[in-house]
Computed example of a mutant assay.
Amino acid sequence: MYAKLYAFIYIRGFKIWTSYKTQVILTILSWTLPVFTYYFVGTSLGNSIVSKIGVSNYTSFFVIGLAFQGYVSSVITTVSQRIRNEQLYGTIEYYVLSKSGVTSFLLYSSMWGFTINTINALVILSVGLGLGVNYHIDILASLLVIILLILSTLGLAFLSGAFTMIIKQGNPISFFFSTFTTLMTGVVFPVAVIPSFIRGVSYVLPLTWALETLRETMLEGASLPQVAFQLLILAIFDAILLPLGILAFKLAFKKARIKGTLGEY
């Protein structure tokens, strides 16, 4: 396991990523610039206007949202893009037919996505600290929320991988979670301000529950008993999405093998 983690995270991920210095700089800028954008937007609007959307400290609100939104959108995109790249390179068969198996290939491929987005989250949280965000973190509760969010994201990533395996391009799962999560899950504004006829969609997405809970555990110091209900909801998402994602990817892989389209792009 350690050898696989080393190969996928360090050699296949970090070593290749850091070899492109310009890309590293641009990636870090893409993490930090939105923080300043929303900070100056909130500052220019003024506290009286910002408070009307039900947020007492707007900087704290969007910093948590931006820091952890990437765990969903970027990881899902990374996994589907990894499969897509292996199809283009002609190496997908070697990965999925290896001793590691189909599920292992997808799981270890997602590890780099989680690693880079952990760095992303830490950078954004650090910038938020410099902008005056006061963190009151219950470490145990926050870590448990993040773990539950990661598990649900794995399920969604597997679903995204299943689509890529079959349709090659135009992945609806990846498109939705890379485009609409900022709008629908309370990343930069509360879900409460979304029109009521579509607000229900927000609460069938695990990221909505995770962000609301993380704001409580990281900004208000809420403990495990205080967020027990939200943790239960996230656990239910995990129990549904993770097996569903694994099953979908295995079925897609089987279908691609039967049709002989595994390496097509």
Rank of each mutant, 00 (worst) to 15 (best):
Y71V: 13
N117Y: 03
I147Q: 02
I240R: 02
Y6N: 14
I116K: 04
P172S: 05
Y10Q: 11
V145I: 07
I28P: 07
L156K: 00
G101F: 01
L29V: 13
V24W: 03
G65W: 01
G42F: 08
G263W: 00
I11C: 03
T77H: 06
Q81A: 10
G113A: 13
F197G: 00
V24Q: 13
L107S: 10
Y71F: 15
F177M: 08
L156I: 10
T213W: 01
Y265R: 13
Q230C: 00
S174H: 05
V123C: 05
M165F: 02
I139E: 10
G170H: 04
Q226D: 12
G101W: 01
P195D: 07
V193W: 10
Q169E: 05
V79I: 08
I53D: 06
L234W: 03
I49M: 13
V193K: 09
I167D: 04
L97Y: 04
V201E: 01
L144M: 09
F114A: 11
P225V: 10
I64R: 09
I28H: 01
L207R: 07
V204K: 08
F14Y: 15
F158M: 04
K259E: 12
I233W: 02
I116M: 03
Y71P: 14
G260D: 10
L88V: 12
Y265M: 14
I240S: 01
V50M: 15
L231V: 05
T217G: 12
S104I: 06
D138Q: 05
T59D: 07
V201Q: 02
K255G: 05
A3H: 08
L143H: 04
I124T: 10
S80F: 02
I258N: 09
M1S: 10
R84V: 00
M1G: 09
V204E: 02
F177Q: 07
S60M: 00
Y20F: 15
P195F: 07
